[in-house]
Design a binder for these strands. Sequence first.
DNA 1: ATTACAAGTGTAAGCGCTTACATCGACCTA
DNA 2: TAGGTCGATGTAAGCGCTTACACTTGTAAT
Lengths: 342, 342
Amino acid sequence: MNEFTKPTLDDVARAAGVSTATVSRCLNAPDRVIAPTRERVMLAVEALGYTPDFGGRALASRRTNTVGAIIPTMDNAIFARGLQSFQEALSRFGKTLLVASSGYSPAREREQIEVMAGRGVDGVLLIGSARPESSVEFLRRRGIPFLGAWNLGGEDGYFVGFDNHAAAAGLTRMVLDQGHRRLAMIGGISHMNDRAADRMEGVRAAAELAGIRRDQLPVIEAAYTFEDGARAFGELMALSPRPTAVLCGNDVLAVGAMQKARELDLRVPEDVSITGFDDIDLAGVVDPKLTTVRVPHLRMGEAAAEMLIKLINKEPVERRVEIPTAIVERGTLGPPPADPVA
Amino acid sequence: MNEFTKPTLDDVARAAGVSTATVSRCLNAPDRVIAPTRERVMLAVEALGYTPDFGGRALASRRTNTVGAIIPTMDNAIFARGLQSFQEALSRFGKTLLVASSGYSPAREREQIEVMAGRGVDGVLLIGSARPESSVEFLRRRGIPFLGAWNLGGEDGYFVGFDNHAAAAGLTRMVLDQGHRRLAMIGGISHMNDRAADRMEGVRAAAELAGIRRDQLPVIEAAYTFEDGARAFGELMALSPRPTAVLCGNDVLAVGAMQKARELDLRVPEDVSITGFDDIDLAGVVDPKLTTVRVPHLRMGEAAAEMLIKLINKEPVERRVEIPTAIVERGTLGPPPADPVA
DNA sequence: ATTACAAGTGTAAGCGCTTACATCGACCTA
DNA sequence: TAGGTCGATGTAAGCGCTTACACTTGTAAT
């Protein structure tokens, strides 16, 4: 090799005076090579600045040590944070992360799944479980292990996540305990988004148990933006009777709602209570601080990585790993006003 | 091939009654094959469910259609957002994104650069320009095109970003115009972080022009967290004379400072002015809303993708693409108190 | 008719690596 | 000492693809 071409296994082998097989073993199974030889080889590796070629390695070993993640968007703190810890954990296992985003669209997700498959990923991380059967089937056919995260999924498949339904129900019970009876909800768009749907269902179920019929619980679905949260909150406040507590599908919606409340001169929580979900940074920064559900996204990412790696290595894995959530009581939930607006 | 092994080019070639070369051409340069042949081949591809093998392709063609990005962390809205649009743009060009994080450590960045190189990426996106020459040298040797983003860099290399120095200076002038003379700064850790360093220098330079000597401008470096921002702000407020305006290296630090201010019963901006940098969501949500510098992270990501693709294709590119920033005047900057604490 | 050329296709040589199998000693056992 | 075992290393056959080059044929120019 000269100064300008990448050194190859062969170059290293020649430099160290061994065969390419030995160099390969030094790199992949160091304990199968005796120490002095190994050192000689490693020195040569160092000296030449050798790094293995990905294509060659992938071709010969039929593995890429690459893992794909397809998330709705990184532009949402919860996924960004989860992805960050996922990537770090992966990196500890010597895997690299291929990232694609679906923008919450199942069709786009499907495309990206195919891209990932074409890339020869060893495994794929997906978000949630709501997707066309054909996407799942595709992955199965290809024999690519995959994992749903951020939710616990249905009958089959592997999942690591939390129980969105139960968490939402728990928070709702807390709202009910404060004495609220006129609840309302601003949920995420639930179509093909099981997290949003589960949270909505959780709220409804808990309310129902308290004798509040579904048709007595107004629900607006909104995209996860401040603006849409604010708009939905406005609509809700125009209702008569006016809800005394608004449960939001995530913190972004909740903060949007709070901004609108201020605009409408409604005090939180004196005039109306608001709750969120996720406990992103935002939640601790608004005034009053947001009562919400804490979701350990970092732990999620890590657990997902560990689980996916096991799946790839065909080690035994639990079908579902549940990450516990916790309600964070802060300042936006209080008792309903004594004399609520009719 | 049978039901269980992936079809190869050879299988397709046999099925279509052509050579592998022709199949390969059908896939990579369709116009070099006559239509009837092409159709026959495509039919066979379809029938067998053939998808090219990534390893083989990478090995033979010496390119992967993969681009790497090494950022400090996704757990910072600005990078997450930029990365999101970078990825989307890349995807439009048929490239996939490999993500790694450095945690602001040049050593870790170097490692990841090597991983990326080993992965055979066609190009790499890096953040900023502050890194050991050896890292740059490595990339050069390997002939891997790379691009620094979020800043405009120095003598050589390609950059797409904004002028952190000028933006910080502009904001500082605005603070000075309000009548402030006792400035202070909470900057990011500037070691090997040119963005942080440039912002700091920008503030200092503008202050100096207004006759404020460097030693009259206290600066504390802090990690980009609420806690560190709060702590630094506490220290600054204990100074005598107390600063009347605190310029922060980013919005996270600024919000941390605002929280501390509330704790200390200092009103913003009546008792003390605070400014941020980046204009992340947080900035519009705190009370009062944060006066800060808007950085178009989405445009950044997109521009970076376009530029890197050109670099990869060896098309002509400008050495530096500057993305304009804008000062967003909101509620945390006001005139200094009439009777400032000595 | 001959020649030159171009377009369509085939042939076959790798790309850099892993790994099954072969080889070679060193060491043990009877 | 012969035979057996085992651990360390070497040999070499691919992995699936791209592509330089060769070949064949049809067409246009002479």
